[in-house]
Amino acid sequence: MIAQQIINAVSLGGVYALLALGLAIVFSIVGLINFAHGELMTLSGYALLAALVFGLPFPVAVLVAVSCGALAAVAMERVAFRPMRGASVTSLLLTSFAVSSLLKVVFQNGISARPQAVAMPGWMTGAFSFGDFTIGVGPSISIVVSALALIALEVFLRRSVTGTAMRAAAEDFNVVRLMGIPASRIIATAFLLSGLLAGLAAMLWVAQRASVDPLMGFTPVLKAFIAAVVGGLGSLPGAVAGGFLLGIIEVLLQATLPAAIAPYRDAIVLSGVIAVLLLRPQGLIPAVRVQRS
C-alpha cells in the first residue's frame, strides 16, 4: 500500500509540476503570474470535448486540444498582455485576473454552467495488476507524460537558439534585446510553451476527473502558484521541485491523517508552505535573478 501511495503522489506531483512550470516560464521572462493559466486548461478541456463530439479519434482529439491551449495562450498574450507590456507587476496581475474572470463567464454563459462529461476511452480506466498490487492506467500515463514533457522542455531550453535566448532573457532581458533578439518572439514563445504545458496538464486532469466545467481552472492554478512560490518564483527547476513536493505532501496527508483531522488537510499543507518560505524565503531552488511580485 505504501508503494501504491508513492505512485499516487508522483502522479499528482507530475501534474502540479507541469502546471507550475507553465506559470514559471512566463514569470521568469515577463514578471507576470498569469492567473488565467487555469482557463487555458479549461479551454483545452472543452476543445477535447468538442473534438470528441465531432467524432475525431481520441489521439487526434488530444492533439487538437493541446494545440488549442497553446494557441489560446499566444492569443491571450497578443490581446491582453502585449498592450500592457512594461506596466507594473500589479497591473499585469490584475489584467490576468480580469482575463480569467472574463473567460469563466464566457464559458458559463456560452457553453453551460453544468459540467460536461468527457467519456474517456475504456482502456484509460483500466489497471495493471501484479499480485495484489495494482497500478491504474491513468496515473501511469500521468507519470510518463509529465516526465516526457519535462525532458522535452529541458532539451528545448538547452539545445535550441530560442531556448538559449529564453534562458538568457530570464537572467537579463535587456541584454538579450541588445544582442538583437526580438522581445516579442521570446515572449510569444514563453506563452506558447506555457499554453502547451497547460494543455497537457488539462488532458491529465480531465482524464482523472471525467468532466470539464467552467470553473475547473481555479484549483489547478492555485496549486501551481503555491508550487511555483515554494520552488522559487521564476526558477524552472524550482517549479518542478515545488510541484512534486506539493503533490507528495497532499497525498501523504490524505493517506495518513485520521478522518477527524482530514478536513484540515489544506490548512496543514499551507502551513507547511509558510514553514518552507520562512526557512528559504527565495524558495527551494531560487531563480538566478530574484523577482518579487
Binding site: 499528482l12 476527473r209 489547478p220 497532499e250 497525498v251 490524505q254 478522518a259 482530514a262 478536513p263
Partner: peptide, 21 residues
C-alpha cells in the same frame, strides 16, 4: 470505514488506496 474529501479536490487516489486497503 469513513473518508473525507474537499470539494474541488483534484485527486482521490489516496482515499481510494485507503478503501482498497
Amino acid at each position: 470505514g469513513r473518508g473525507t474529501f474537499t470539494m474541488g479536490q483534484p485527486d482521490f487516489s489516496a482515499e481510494i488506496t485507503n478503501i482498497k486497503g
